[in-house]
């Protein structure tokens, strides 16, 4: 008898999956009517977010983010460069966003996804306009040498709201950066502090001073509801999204609404901004806790 029941369960599962695939928008509609999302969360809630900092030993700063199933890994690698001619008292940060073929069935190796340059640019703009890292922090010796920071964000699993997860990973990786101890000679040659051969001046290692930290919240628009932090499935069905970028204190940095079917009224835009401000508080807590945990791990290692 038990076996028979089990069999009918299986058939129900298959029918449910078929309904999900054949009538995706009706499927979503059935859930929204009841006030829940297909993954079981309430309408206005973002997915559970896990941030861990300092997981890559080869990078000077790193962070991993899991936003539901969406997974991002960011690493910062530092290189020494001659001071830029146009701005002798600044270093540089280069941002790249990578979607390797492992992250989604839609990406094929060797072919760049359209999203890669778009998201990289959005991260770069957010970091620049919030002044999260003052580029003058990256000087080694004005007019001689400076740090070039390569910030690479890898998407390991793509399940919607990519910018939100990527920006969180990028910001946390930068916050984790510790400039290494180095020595510089009078003519601008830079060495690791422990292999100095000539007369040189030693610079202590330090953490970067951080300005305001940016965050993003993507909202998918349904004619009757606003769904923050959509999954790939929801993004595929609803098509219209608004992405709000703020800093942790709730100040608006930028807002993207790239076309779409649903026209957004002012009140919808304002609701999205309100949701982003609320999300900012959540993320600030997660961010601060992750950085503090990494710091205490560091001091324990030092002991």
């Amino acid at each position: 008898m038990a076996k028979l029941e089990h069999g009918s369960d299986d058939r129900e599962d298959v029918e449910l999956e078929a309904f999900r695939r054949l009538y995706p928008s009706e499927f979503l509609q059935q859930f929204l009517k009841e006030g829940v999302r297909p993954d079981g969360r309430p309408l206005g809630r973002a997915r559970s977010t896990v941030l861990s900092v300092g997981s890559l030993p080869h990078a000077e700063g790193s962070a991993m983010v899991k936003l539901g199933n969406t997974t991002m890994l960011a690493g910062v690698k530092l290189e020494v460069m001659p001071s830029p001619v146009d701005s002798p008292d600044e270093g540089r940060i280069a941002v790249e966003f990578q979607m390797p073929a492992i992250c989604s069935p839609l990406v094929r190796p060797g072919r760049q996804s359209e999203l890669e340059p778009v998201i990289a640019e959005q991260i770069k703009n957010a970091l620049t306009s919030t002044m999260m890292v003052d580029l003058r922090e990256l000087i080694i010796a004005p007019g001689k040498a400076a740090w070039m920071a390569y910030l690479d964000v890898y998407c390991l699993d793509a399940d919607g709201s990519l910018l939100d997860a990527a920006l969180l990973a990028a910001a946390a990786a930068l916050a984790d950066v510790k400039l290494p101890e180095i020595a510089i000679t009078d003519d601008g040659k830079v060495f690791p502090a422990n292999v100095v051969t000539e007369k040189a001046q030693t610079l202590k290692g330090k953490r970067l001073k951080l300005g305001k930290i940016p965050m993003a919240l993507t909202c998918a628009l349904h004619p009757k509801h606003i769904l923050p932090d959509p999954t790939a499935e929801e993004e595929g069905i609803l098509k219209t999204t608004i992405t709000v970028l703020t800093d942790f204190s709730g100040q608006l940095v930028s807002l993207y609404k790239p076309g779409g079917e649903v026209l957004a009224s002012t009140s919808i835009v304002q609701s999205c901004i309100a949701l982003a401000k609320y999300r900012g508080k959540e993320l600030q807590k997660i961010f601060t806790e992750a950085i503090m945990k990494a710091d205490s791990d560091d001091t324990m290692d030092a002991d």
């Binding site: 290189e79 020494v80 460069m81 001659p82 540089r92 040498a145 180095i182 040659k189 830079v190 690791p192």
Partner: peptide
């Protein structure tokens, strides 16, 4: 990037 890299800084490669 217009700059050329002077030295690739890395403790590990040393």
């Amino acid at each position: 990037m217009a700059q050329s890299r002077v030295s690739s800084y890395s403790l590990e490669s040393q």
